[in-house]
């Protein structure tokens, strides 16, 4: 059945301000399809963002929405989730938001395994501020603050999440909509902290500076540096070298933070009553 997107969108805020060829809208549609499939009600969802292009999302979606300070979305969301655990809490952020200024909150949210669903709109550039290099900018790629090419090594969002203890980690390209749908849906179903590294292209800045061509050519370039995790064993180490796996990369069961806290309250109450 077709999804009624406007059930979840604030119609009066359309059209969105994302550039032509930007992949962010495709990620939002994947998020909407996951919510629709799970039957979540608008009233039971809190969607939190930081600052940047990704952070236009809360303005467009008709939930309890919070547009916080740069990098701090996960920290605000932690307060919301712990204070009101029955809310479904989704956080959206960019690569700068989550890997640079908010990196500390990212690793600790992973470690705590609090039931927050994080979608990182990763376009390896600071779009909103005019195309500066980000922690996921590819080595040698150009940006307004890397005019001679980026000298540093990029972060791998998923490796970072797995190493920090996230219990669900996946990656998908906006090029592959069915995979993006599956990864986001499974991450939303997961109990615990989930991270989806959702790749999007920024033709306006990243594409232009690096002469990566039009949006579809950019998508093609991203495709060339990725492989599906299901082909992990079929591909040689040489073929996988320098490439990013896509799909559901990591999923484990681990006690969720809010549930542990509720249990603590319950136990203390029982103990008090017994005394």
């Amino acid at each position: 059945m077709a999804v009624d997107y406007f059930k979840y969108l604030r119609k009066e805020k359309m059209p969105h301000i994302w550039c032509a060829g930007c992949g962010h809208g495709m990620i939002v549609k994947s998020i909407i399809r996951a919510i629709d499939k799970l039957g979540w009600k608008n009233n039971e969802i809190a969607l939190v963002s930081g600052i940047g292009c990704s952070s236009r999302t809360p303005g467009y979606l008709d939930f309890h929405t919070l547009h916080t300070t740069h990098g701090r979305a996960l920290a605000f969301a932690t307060g919301i989730k712990l204070a009101r655990p029955n809310l479904k809490v989704i956080v959206v952020g960019g690569d700068g938001d989550m890997m640079a200024i908010g990196g500390n909150h990212f690793i600790h949210a992973c470690r705590r395994n609090i039931d927050i669903k994080l979608v990182v709109y990763n376009n390896n550039i600071y779009g909103m501020t005019g195309g500066q290099a980000s922690p996921t900018t590819l080595t040698d790629a150009k940006a307004t603050t890397a005019p001679y090419g980026f000298l540093e090594e990029p972060f791998d969002v998923c490796n970072m999440a797995i190493a920090s203890g996230a219990s669900f980690v996946g990656r998908a390209l906006d090029l592959d909509v069915p995979l993006m749908d599956r990864v986001i849906l499974e991450s939303f179903k997961h109990k615990g902290f989930s991270v989806v590294d959702a790749w999007s292209q920024c033709p306006t800045y990243f594409g232009r500076f690096n002469r990566w061509g039009n949006p579809s050519e950019m998508m093609e370039k991203y495709k060339q540096i990725t492989y599906n995790i299901r082909q992990k064993d079929q591909l040689s180490e040489e073929e996988k070298k320098g490439k990013y796996p896509v799909g559901i990369l990591h999923q484990i069961e681990r006690p969720e933070f809010c549930e542990k806290y509720e249990k603590l309250i319950e136990n203390l109450k029982t103990k008090e009553e017994a005394e």
Binding site: A75, F76, T78, G79, A83
Partner: peptide, 15 residues
């Protein structure tokens, strides 16, 4: 930074 952020988030959740 995250302490005050979490506090503001919890307060928005009505606590």
């Amino acid at each position: 930074i995250s302490s005050i952020a979490a506090v503001l988030g919890a307060s928005l959740a009505g606590v």
